[in-house]
Structures are given as structure tokens and as C-alpha cells.
Design a protein around this nucleic acid. Structure first.
Length: 272
DNA sequence: CTTTAAACCTGCTGGC
DNA sequence: TGCCAGCAGGTTTAAA
């Protein structure tokens, strides 16, 4: 469940399912986490929240579970005792009297003392979460002016979790399209108007995705996406290679930027 | 300092 | 059917 909007949605779903209820059963597939099966039994989950693409599950005994889905991790909610039919490997099961939350396939799961979680190496490097409602356009504009970021090409900068946490490959493509910029453009070379458009897109696109998305990846990774609850974030360039640009009709092109696939409109996104 | 490439995590596809 | 290379919405590491 890759980018910020999806992880935040998962956090919402998991929290609604199990928050505050005592755990009757806890399972970890990782040998290093086995001791926590006992420590967490009969305890309750205090909060489940997303930080960029990381998920933090805080228990009421001072421990917090850090997990990162990377490309493969999948969280599921299931009735207590039931296990979805899947070939995936179950990594974490947190089960209350009626509901369980289950983490499959993820390989990055750690337990931290809650009071030390901020020093986790991944979290410590994160920029502000793009879905944090306290983050506004002025703050993003200020980051684009920082010495550490202003000379960087946008293709790499938008993927850098230290710039803004939660952006990923599809958001990068959609932000660049909305801002009508190429991945080679750098903040220091942009006009005031371009910077303003880019700033707005950095916030608006992820938030639109979170709000409308409900998108679920199809069961297998290359199966594309499907609407969920009748709604789905609309890709204007991502994975639309060969299809006409919605603005100008020019076929969308697939390229590579920073070793990742990038889709763009060669006409709308011209060199600045 | 930034950028690039490769490695690694896992699951699935497509070709032979 | 079986095997393997390649790819993917990610991150880390090392090298350039």
C-alpha cells in the first residue's frame, strides 16, 4: 500500500477496527518480535497513525510498532479468528475479541519504546507529512527555497522523503503534470508563478488522492487499480502511456527519472 | 553536496 | 508445467 494517501487510509481503517479494545491474541512471524507476543497480550492499541509511508501502532504499555509496507506489505481487517485466503505470508496479527488486523508480506517491522520512536532512523529523516493538515502552502514554499532543496531536480526531490513525507512515484508524476514541469526542472530556476503552482500541486494532489481515492490495487501488483466504494483517484498521466493528454491531446509518454518510471505529457510539460 | 546504480524486501507476470 | 528474468506505487547503501 504504497504512497502517503494509501497508508493514511489504512491507518484510519485499522484504527476504526481495533482501537482501545484489549488484544486477545498477538502473533509475530519475526523471531526477534516473538517476546512481544506476551508483552502485548491483554493490552490495547492506543493509536494507529501514518507518518509519511510508515505506520505507527502505539500500545498502552509504552511500546510502539513501526512498520513499513514498502512495495509489498498489505494490511487486512478480518473477523477474529478468520484468515483471508491468500498465498501471502502473515507477518503480524493483532486480534481483539471480535476483530483482527493482519499484516502480510511486509518485511520491515520493529518494536520501539514509544518515547524513543522519534529517533527511529527513518522517521528522524522525514520532512513534514504532506497530509498533515497543519502543513500549508507557505511552509512548502519555504522548503522549496531551502538551500538543501532549491538546486535539486524535481524528479528526485519529489521522491525524497526528507523534502515532503508521503510523496511517491504516482504522486510525483501527477504533481509534475499539474505544475506543467519536467523532472529536470529545479526550484531555483522557476518563476514565481511556477513555484506557486508547484507548491499548490504538492499539497492538493496528495490531498485529493486521500479524499477521493479509496483506490485499491487489484490483488496482484501488475493488475492495475480498481475503484473502491465507487471512488478512485484519477490518474492524468500515471500509467497512461500512449493515451491522449487530457489537456492537449498529445500522447502521454513513459520515461525514466531517478531509476523509476515517469509518465508525462511532452507538450504540456515543456522545459522552463 | 547531489546524482546514479545496484541491492534488497516480496509477489506476480510473461516468455521460453 | 517449470524456471527465470524483469518489473513494481519503496528504501538503503555505496560509489561517482
Amino acid at each position: 500500500m504504497p504512497e502517503g494517501p494509501e497508508i493514511h487510509r489504512v491507518a484510519d481503517r485499522l484504527a476504526a477496527a481495533v482501537l482501545g479494545k484489549p488484544l486477545v491474541r498477538v502473533e509475530f512471524a519475526f523471531p526477534a518480535l516473538k517476546p512481544y507476543e506476551r508483552k502485548l497480550r491483554r493490552r490495547a492499541i492506543e493509536s494507529i497513525s501514518a507518518r509519511g509511508k510508515a505506520l505507527l501502532t502505539a500500545f498502552d504499555n509504552g511500546w510502539t510498532m513501526y512498520s513499513h509496507n514498502q512495495l509489498y506489505g498489505v494490511w487486512k481487517v478480518a473477523p477474529a479468528g478468520e484468515r483471508p485466503v491468500t498465498t501471502r505470508s502473515l507477518r503480524v496479527a493483532l486480534e481483539t475479541a471480535d476483530t483482527a488486523i493482519l499484516l502480510y508480506s511486509a518485511s520491515d517491522v520493529e518494536m520501539w519504546r514509544s518515547d524513543a520512536i522519534e529517533s527511529h532512523p527513518f522517521l528522524a529523516k522525514l520532512g513534514p507529512d504532506v497530509l498533515d493538515p497543519r502543513l500549508d502552502a507557505a511552509a512548502v514554499a519555504e522548503r522549496l527555497r531551502l538551500l538543501a532543496f532549491r538546486h535539486r531536480a524535481l524528479g528526485g526531490l519529489l521522491l525524497d522523503q526528507g523534502f515532503l513525507a508521503g510523496l511517491g512515484n504516482y504522486l510525483r508524476a501527477e504533481i509534475l503534470f499539474a505544475a506543467r514541469l519536467l523532472p529536470t526542472a529545479r526550484p531555483c530556476d522557476l518563476t514565481t508563478a511556477q513555484l506557486r503552482t508547484l507548491t499548490k500541486a504538492c499539497l492538493a494532489i496528495p490531498r485529493l488522492s486521500y479524499a477521493t481515492r479509496g483506490v485499491e490495487p487489484k490483488p496482484h501488483m501488475h493488475g492495475g487499480y480498481q475503484a473502491h466504494e465507487g471512488r478512485m483517484f484519477h490518474f492524468r498521466v500515471f500509467k497512461r502511456e500512449g493515451q491522449p493528454c487530457e489537456r492537449c491531446g498529445t500522447p502521454i509518454v513513459k520515461t525514466t527519472s531517478d531509476s523509476r518510471p515517469l509518465f508525462l505529457c511532452p507538450r504540456c510539460q515543456a522545459a522552463s
